[in-house]
Simulated assay, not measured.
Amino acid sequence: METRTQDGLTFRTAADADVPELVRLVESAYRGDASRAGWTTEADFLEGQRTDEKGVREVIETPDSVLLVVEREGELVACCQLQHRGDHAYFGMFAVRPVLQGAGLGKVIIAEAERRVRELWGAREMRMTVVNVRAELIAWYERRGYRLTGETSPFPYGQERFGVPLRDDLAFVLLVKDLD
């Protein structure tokens, strides 16, 4: 996959050497006190890990999957997973360094992700799942053209690999955007 620079950001495919730093980025964006510096924290309803080195390597090694690394001035500032799933692409593992959240990076990154899945796989639709209690995050995606489908899937309670829930009402909601 190409390396591309846009708006002072460099986009490239993750390599195995990136794994430890990617784990730190994802964890800092979603869990623990460090995540509270940004607005995407899940620390109020999930403890424990968001991902681990094994999980990140699986994303990198999965066929028809790309873990997109975003750097600014050589520093890793964000990442996202793109996966080809038949007639659509899946967008996941989106993380922006907490101190940089709210500065417009997310808009640029998601636009690049959408461009890439159209170009790479001819995807006509992007899908993602978001934890149902993340109203502000769901609203952010809706402002980018994603829509709630009404479909939900259960949260993997009891699988600490995905975190330790602090509430018993968690589920994932499906959001979809037409890319035509």
Rank of each mutant, 00 (worst) to 15 (best):
G104T: 13
W39K: 07
L170K: 00
F155C: 00
L174M: 06
R36C: 10
L175P: 05
E47T: 15
V117H: 13
W39P: 11
L166C: 11
A34K: 01
L170R: 00
R57C: 05
G104C: 10
V23R: 00
G145F: 10
R4K: 08
R12F: 15
V173F: 10
V23S: 07
A43P: 02
L25W: 00
V176Y: 01
G8E: 09
Q83D: 11
M1Q: 09
L179C: 07
L120S: 10
R4H: 15
I138Q: 08
A113C: 08
I60A: 00
G74F: 12
V164C: 00
H88D: 14
C79F: 12
G102M: 06
P98V: 11
V26H: 01
V130A: 06
T13H: 13
F162A: 05
L67Q: 02
A113E: 03
G8L: 08
Q101G: 08
S35Q: 04
R72E: 14
L175Y: 08
V130W: 06
L68V: 07
A95R: 02
Y90M: 11
E2C: 06
E61H: 04
R161H: 07
G150D: 02
R124S: 13
I60H: 00
R31A: 04
S28W: 00
W39F: 11
T62S: 12
L82W: 04
F11L: 01
R124D: 14
E119H: 06
Q83S: 15
P63W: 05
V70K: 02
D87T: 15
D33G: 11
A14K: 01
A135K: 09
G150N: 11
G38R: 12
E21K: 10
R24K: 10
K107S: 13
L76R: 06
D168C: 07
W140T: 15
Y157W: 05
S28R: 05
K107H: 09
R97M: 13
V176S: 12
M93K: 13
R147H: 05
A37E: 09
A95E: 06
A37K: 05
G92L: 03
G32H: 01
R24S: 06
M1V: 09
W39N: 12
D33T: 08
Y141R: 04
S153T: 08
K177D: 05
W121S: 02
D33S: 05
D180H: 04
R36H: 12
L175E: 09
A135S: 11
L148N: 03
Q159Y: 11
T13G: 12
R161G: 13
R144E: 15
E114F: 04
A139W: 03
L174K: 14
P156S: 10
V108S: 08
H88A: 14
L105V: 12
R118F: 06
G38E: 01
R143I: 04
R50W: 02
